Simulated assay, not measured.
Amino acid sequence: MMYGGDGWMWNGGWGWGGWILMTLVMVAFWGLVITAVVLAVRYLAGGGSHHNRAGGGSAPADSRAENVLADRYARGEIDVDEYRQRLTLIRETR
């Protein structure tokens, strides 16, 4: 009998230290469970993608196109006239 007259749980057990340890372990366990649930909900609700979230949201497609165009111009792949023409085209099709 584990909980009988001389059972380890009540007489001669870990005493208060055991109860404190069990309490801390349970708090840590439930903290991990709650954290896992919150992360799972955020992952599923957000579609699972964590990139392109600088500034709280993803950049619109036209803004990304402008960035790519600016990078090409900065690398010298296109000249200023082509840059302006394409930038105008991108902004007109919004």
Results as ranks from 00 to 15, higher is better:
Gly18Tyr: 02
Asp81Cys: 05
Gly5Ala: 12
Glu66Pro: 00
Asn52Met: 05
Leu87Cys: 03
Val25Glu: 03
Gly56Ala: 08
Tyr83Asp: 03
Leu32Arg: 14
Arg72Ser: 13
Ala28Tyr: 04
Gly31Asn: 04
Glu82Gln: 15
Gly55Ser: 09
Val33Asn: 00
His50Trp: 11
Trp14Cys: 11
Val68Ser: 07
Val38Gln: 10
Val38Trp: 02
Leu44Ala: 05
His50Gln: 07
Ile90Arg: 04
Val25Cys: 06
Ala36Phe: 12
Met22Asn: 09
Val25Leu: 15
Arg64Gly: 00
Glu66Gln: 12
Leu39Cys: 12
Asp79Leu: 03
Arg53Ile: 11
Arg42Glu: 06
Ser58Asp: 06
Val33Gly: 00
Asp79Phe: 03
Ala40Met: 15
Thr88Leu: 13
Leu44Val: 06
Leu39Gln: 14
Trp10Ala: 08
Gly46Gln: 07
Val37Trp: 00
Glu77Pro: 02
Leu44Tyr: 11
Gly56Thr: 05
Glu77Phe: 00
Asn67Leu: 08
Asn52Pro: 01
Leu89Met: 13
Gly56Pro: 02
Asp79Ser: 04
Gly12Pro: 01
Val80Met: 12
Trp16Pro: 04
Arg91Gln: 15
Ala36Arg: 11
Asn11Phe: 10
Trp16Ala: 09
Gly48Phe: 01
Gly47Asn: 00
Ser49Thr: 04
Leu39Trp: 10
Arg53Pro: 02
Asp6Arg: 14
Leu89Cys: 01
Val25Ala: 09
Gly12Ala: 11
Glu92Arg: 14
Arg84Ser: 09
Leu69Asn: 06
Arg86Gly: 02
Gly7Ile: 01
Gly46Arg: 14
Gly4Asp: 12
Gly46Leu: 03
Arg94Lys: 13
Ala36Tyr: 11
Asp62Thr: 14
Asn67Arg: 04
Gly4Glu: 10
Gly76Ile: 07
Ser58Phe: 01
Met22Ile: 13
Trp8Ser: 12
Leu44Arg: 07
His50Gly: 10
Val80Tyr: 15
Asp81Glu: 14
Thr35Asn: 10
Arg86Asn: 07
Trp30Gln: 10
Phe29Cys: 03
Met9Pro: 03
His50Asn: 12
Asp62Leu: 10
Leu39Lys: 15
Leu87Ala: 13
Glu92Ser: 15
Gly15Tyr: 07
Gly7Leu: 04
Asp62Glu: 15
Phe29Asn: 01
Gly47Thr: 01
Arg84Thr: 00
Leu21Asn: 09
Asn67Tyr: 07
Asp6Lys: 15
Arg84His: 12
Arg64Gln: 14
Leu69Trp: 06
Asn11Ala: 12
Val27Cys: 09
Ser58Tyr: 01
Val41Trp: 08
Arg53Thr: 08
Leu89Ile: 08
Tyr83His: 09
Gly47His: 02
Ile20Arg: 07
Arg64Asp: 06
Gly13Leu: 01
Asn52Lys: 05
Arg75Cys: 02
Ala45Asn: 13
Gly76Trp: 11
Met1Leu: 14
Arg84Pro: 00
Val25Trp: 01
Met2Tyr: 01
